[in-house]
Each structure stands twice: as structure tokens, then as C-alpha cells.
Design a protein around this nucleic acid. Structure first.
Length: 421
DNA sequence: AGACCTTTGAAGGAT
DNA sequence: ATCCTTCAAAGGTCT
């Protein structure tokens, strides 16, 4: 963490070297203005975040070594995969599926003018691996031809605003009213579980040696095959989709992540009120990244608070190369595509007032207005520097082990003020 | 119990 | 065209 060492001569500064992630960004901006290229900045950020990966407590050294080795393996695999894709593209369109072992559903590509079945990009499987890695990661053909993520730094042939109309989606009955044989293609018996693009991944879905107990159900795919069995959340097409969640709000991770949720026990109170299932938004690239990497960060930083985890993940996200990010943009595009196919009439607006934390449609507009008002007030406070919720998350490095731990700044306000005021 | 925090990106309404 | 707002996930924390 270069910018931290500039402040003093100590290797670790005070007993607790502190990084305020909020302030840190400002420092980085200055550095960028002065000297660093964008890539350098990303590396700098990465080094900040990954500091803990390098400097770990002695008792975890072996663990870290294996971890780093596997990360290298992952990166190498990723590069190999990209190379392979590149080679395939040299020969034109995909001759064969990148991952022939996976069952694919051939979906018409809404991005193609004739909505014809594309041999490559349209192979969206409704099956996702029940591993920590996002299932689509390994299921989707990975072609730069179709790496057309929408972020500013990337081409925008997939832009949702350029003409794809949700409500004009073609009839999918031919694709989703699957015959028994078709359904069998997406059953767990296909043996896809044992296949992975990234062999470094442990069966539980996380790069070893992360404990398997961390592979919570949250790591299960939104399209988990297991979910195919439940009637609840069944899409009219007959293909259930995990984006459909019960209107009880919180997802039942002990069942299946977002998938074909089946209520284990009938709740008498709500039995009389059949709730309209809520179709949730498809995950964007960053959300997919978070879903995959959360457990890793939790294991590394011995931190569970999601707000803190998300800060770290946000920085790691920026530290990713564009190629690495492109993988997630592509996955997100596939997610949106599949979501669009499954729910052609769905709009993100549908969930605005649905009150997913409560019962769909029950949240009053007054409550919604309150929420909006709170947001506005918060924004104003933030602009005036009075944001009461600006709780700078601090990364503290233990002087003995250099292992990072995190505290809210309001928990160590005195130290914080001493350093930053 | 439920809102909040925190992140990025997508979507849609408002201007 | 641009800006603003909401919601996706997650789980600890706060009210």
C-alpha cells in the first residue's frame, strides 16, 4: 500500500495502521492525477485490497500458499480459456460448444435481427452449478465476439436501450415447453456437477482451502437444477426460474438460493393469502462478482458485515482487468437475456413499489414516499458534509500478525479523528 | 421486525 | 441526452 507508507517512517505506522476507505479514494484520485496511469491505479487499489492476501498470520501461511497457488491456477486457466476462445474465433464461429458437457437450452438471441438461434451466444442454460462460482461462469460459451458488455469502456452492442423490447420477446413455448427428454437435459443427472472451467475451484464452489461450511446456499445458482422440482415460482412456460421468489422478502437460503423455492412448511397465517410471487431483477455484473467472491473475502478478512465486504469487493472489482470484468459483464448479459426470455412482460419497475422486504403490493405508497424522502435527505446531508451515515470503514492491521480486521470508524472514533483530522 | 449500510450496474421515469 | 431513483445480494448492526 504505497500511499500509506508515505505518511511516516514506520513500517506499519502506529500499532494499528488504518485505512479509511472513504478517504483512500481521494488519495488515489490525487495519485492518479499526478503520476499513475489508470492501470497503475487499479494495481494500486488491488495491492491495497490484496495486502491481506500477502501478509497473513503465520498460522495461515500454508493456507495462503495454497490459496495463491490456486489463484494463479485460476488466472492461468482464465488466460488459457481466453486463448482458446481466441483460437476458436480465428476459425470463425464456434464449431463446437466450448463446454460440450453442459446441457444447453438454445434460446433465440434477442440481439440478433432475426432472433434466430445463435450457435454460440444463445446457449443459455437454465441449469447452474450448485457451487460458489456462478454457474453461468462455466456454462456460458466465452467468446470475445459476444463480449460486448455495456459499460462505458466496452462496446455496446448489447445495450438494452438500443431496441430490445421486453414486451416484444418472441414466443418461447417452443423452447421452454420442453418434452420429457428436453427436461432431462437439465436434470442433475447430466453430470455437469463434476465439470468446471476452472478446476482450481473446489467442489463447494470456492477456491480451496476455504472451508466448505462457507459455501452457503447463497452460492447456489439462481438457476439451480434443484429448483426445477418445485411448483412454486414456476414460470408459465413451465421452466422455473430462481428470480421468482416468495413475496416474504428474504430468500430462503437454506432451501435453495433464489430458485424454485418450495416452502418447507406451510405457514397457517399466510396460507389464506396466496401471495403473488415476485420476480426479482437479474443480477448485474458486479452482483455476480460479489456473489462469487463474497465467501473468499469473508474467509480472508474474518469479516461478515456485508457493508464492509461490499466495500472490499467494490475495490477489487475496480482492480480487475477489463478482461476479467468482461467475464462478469457477459454473464450478466446472459442473465438479463434469460430473464427477458422467461419474463417478457416483467419490468424492473414492477418491484419498485412491491416492497420486496415485505409483501408484494402491500407496501403503501406513503411508506415508499418515506423511503424516498429518507434517501433524499441522506443525499443532501452527504452533499453538505453532514452525512450521519458516513461511517468510514477502517481496515486495521494487527501489528503482530499483519492480519487485517475491520472496524467502523464510529467504533474507534478517537483514533480516526487523530489520524484524519 | 424491519430498516439500514455498502458496493456497482441496469432500468426506467423525469427533466 | 442527461440526471435521478430504485433495486438487485448479503448479513451484521441499529432502531
Amino acid at each position: 500500500m504505497p500511499q500509506l507508507s508515505s505518511g511516516g517512517g514506520d513500517d506499519l505506522g502506529a500499532n494499528d495502521e488504518m485505512i479509511s476507505f472513504k478517504d483512500e479514494g481521494e488519495q488515489e484520485e490525487k495519485i492518479q492525477e499526478n503520476a499513475f496511469t489508470e492501470r497503475d491505479l487499479a494495481d494500486l487499489k488491488s495491492s491495497l485490497v490484496n495486502e491481506s492476501e500477502i501478509n497473513q498470520s503465520p498460522n495461515s501461511a500454508a493456507v495462503r500458499r495454497g490459496q495463491q497457488a490456486e489463484q494463479r491456477g485460476f488466472a492461468e486457466k482464465h488466460r488459457e480459456h481466453l486463448d482458446g476462445v481466441s483460437k476458436q474465433q480465428d476459425g470463425g464461429m464456434y464449431k463446437t460448444p466450448t463446454y460440450p458437457g453442459y446441457p444447453f437450452l438454445m434460446l433465440p438471441d434477442p440481439y440478433l435481427p432475426n432472433s434466430s438461434v445463435s450457435p454460440s451466444s444463445n446457449k443459455v442454460s437454465v441449469v447452474q452449478q450448485s457451487h460458489g462460482m456462478h454457474p453461468l461462469t462455466s456454462l456460458l460459451p466465452y467468446s470475445n465476439d459476444h463480449f460486448s458488455p455495456s459499460p462505458p469502456h466496452l462496446p455496446t452492442d448489447m445495450s438494452q436501450k438500443t431496441g430490445v423490447h421486453r414486451h416484444q420477446s418472441q414466443d418461447l413455448s417452443g423452447y421452454y415447453s420442453l418434452p420429457p427428454g428436453g427436461v432431462s437435459q437439465i436434470t442433475p443427472s447430466m453430470g455437469w456437477q463434476s465439470q468446471s472451467v476452472y478446476p482450481a475451484l473446489s467442489p463447494c464452489g470456492f477456491r480451496q482451502p476455504y472451508p466448505s461450511n462457507l459455501s452457503s446456499a447463497s452460492s447456489y445458482s439462481r438457476f439451480s437444477h434443484s429448483l426445477m422440482l418445485g411448483p412454486s415460482g414456476m414460470h408459465p412456460t413451465g421452466i422455473p426460474h430462481p428470480a421468482i421468489v416468495p413475496p416474504t422478502g428474504k430468500q430462503e437460503h437454506d432451501q435453495y438460493d433464489r430458485g424454485m423455492y418450495v416452502k418447507p412448511q406451510v405457514e397457517p397465517k399466510r396460507e389464506k393469502e396466496p401471495k403473488k410471487p415476485v420476480i426479482k431483477k437479474p443480477l448485474n455484473a458486479f452482483m455476480l462478482y460479489m456473489k462469487e467472491m463474497r465467501a473468499k473475502v469473508i474467509a480472508e478478512c474474518t469479516l461478515k458485515e456485508s457493508a464492509a465486504i461490499n466495500q472490499i469487493l467494490g475495490r477489487r472489482w475496480h482492480a480487475l482487468t477489463r478482461e476479467e470484468q468482461a467475464k462478469y459483464y457477459e454473464l450478466a448479459r446472459k442473465e438479463r437475456q434469460l430473464h427477458m426470455q422467461l419474463y417478457p412482460t416483467w419490468s424492473a419497475r414492477d418491484n419498485y413499489e412491491a416492497g420486496l422486504s415485505g409483501v408484494a403490493g402491500e407496501k403503501s405508497k406513503a411508506d415508499w414516499g418515506k423511503k424516498k424522502r429518507r434517501k433524499r435527505e441522506k443525499q443532501q446531508d452527504s452533499n453538505t458534509g453532514k452525512d450521519p451515515m458516513t461511517k468510514h470503514l477502517l481496515c486495521l492491521f494487527r501489528p503482530d500478525t499483519a492480519a487485517p480486521f475491520f472496524r467502523r470508524s464510529n467504533q474507534i472514533a478517537s483514533v480516526n479523528s487523530a489520524l484524519f483530522e
